[in-house]
Computed example of a mutant assay.
Amino acid sequence: MESASEARTLAEAARERRDIVSGEVMEEARLIRFVPGPDGVAVVPDLARKLPGRGLWVAADRASVETAARKGLFSRAAKAKLQAPPDLADQVESLLRRRVLSALGLARKGGDLTSGFEKVSAAIQSGKAAWLIEASDGAADGRRKLWAQARRQSRPPGLVGVFTASELGLALGLENVIHTAFLAGRAADRWAQDVHRLAGFSPLLPESWREEP
């Protein structure tokens, strides 16, 4: 049975907003919220959708954020003079990376992650793995074996290779983190929302992995 906070989070994610670039109405989970900063002029990202002020919503992809910044669409939507820094899309990507990585640490504390080749393999084969998270600088052999197992599942887990072993280790409080599985459940569903938003700004897999069988 889901908690009141989980139900509220899912309800908020399902709300719809209008993208100021395309004019399309879409779910909040597919958008990035921006607000005027403390100075009332600079545009700042609000990934958690909690900062005060009127929200300005942009589709969660690099091209849309760059277009909004370049064409002054934040000012037009707010009917006020706002300034969007030229590196706004890079700021969003950096914040999303931190948010996704931080959530992994919280998920481990909540028992929603498992790490290590054998444990991850077992999670995949039992159908409990929603996401396979592989260190971007890990050896290809183990990754290929796990991904081969994943592809044989009726519902293969998603694959993420955004973070290095060092970054994963720091987030999880472990050493030499190469293979991790995010177990299916509410936490994985919430994490997936930010992963999908991050995919609009940066590939989820290193280019070299795409050439692997």
Rank of each mutant, 00 (worst) to 15 (best):
L51T: 02
G55T: 02
P38E: 13
R15A: 00
G138P: 09
R62K: 13
V120H: 05
G169K: 06
S75Q: 05
V58W: 15
S208A: 07
G169M: 06
M26G: 07
L104P: 02
R97S: 13
K79W: 10
R108F: 08
R186Q: 12
A188S: 07
E175P: 13
A187R: 03
T114A: 01
D19V: 12
L183Q: 03
K128V: 11
L205V: 06
S121N: 12
L104F: 06
A29S: 06
I178K: 14
K128R: 13
M26S: 09
L56T: 04
V43P: 04
G72P: 11
R30P: 05
T67F: 14
D137T: 03
F201L: 05
S126E: 10
D90A: 01
E27C: 05
W191M: 07
V25R: 04
S75L: 03
I32N: 08
L73K: 01
A60W: 10
R8N: 13
Q149V: 09
A135H: 03
F34I: 05
D90V: 06
K119Q: 15
R151E: 09
S154G: 10
I20W: 13
G55K: 00
L96R: 05
P45C: 08
A139W: 14
E2A: 12
E66G: 00
A11K: 14
K79H: 15
A7F: 11
H179G: 04
R15P: 07
L51Y: 07
S136C: 03
R144T: 12
D61M: 01
T180E: 13
V21F: 06
H196W: 09
R54I: 05
D87P: 10
D194S: 00
A181L: 05
R62L: 01
Q149L: 08
G111E: 11
R190W: 14
R15Q: 12
G116C: 01
L106I: 11
E118R: 06
A78W: 13
A42Y: 12
L101D: 15
P156M: 01
A13Q: 13
A148W: 12
L101H: 03
H196K: 12
R210W: 13
L170G: 02
R144N: 14
G23C: 00
S154W: 15
T180D: 06
L73Q: 08
G53S: 02
R49Q: 15
A103K: 14
H179Q: 09
K128S: 14
L198C: 01
D189F: 07
D39L: 00
E24S: 05
L174N: 10
R54H: 10
F182L: 04
A135T: 03
L101G: 02
F74V: 00
A89C: 03
S136Y: 10
A107N: 00
G110K: 05
A148C: 09
A7L: 13
K81W: 09
G173A: 02
A13Y: 11
L146T: 00
W147Y: 11
P45R: 00
G110E: 08
K71Y: 15
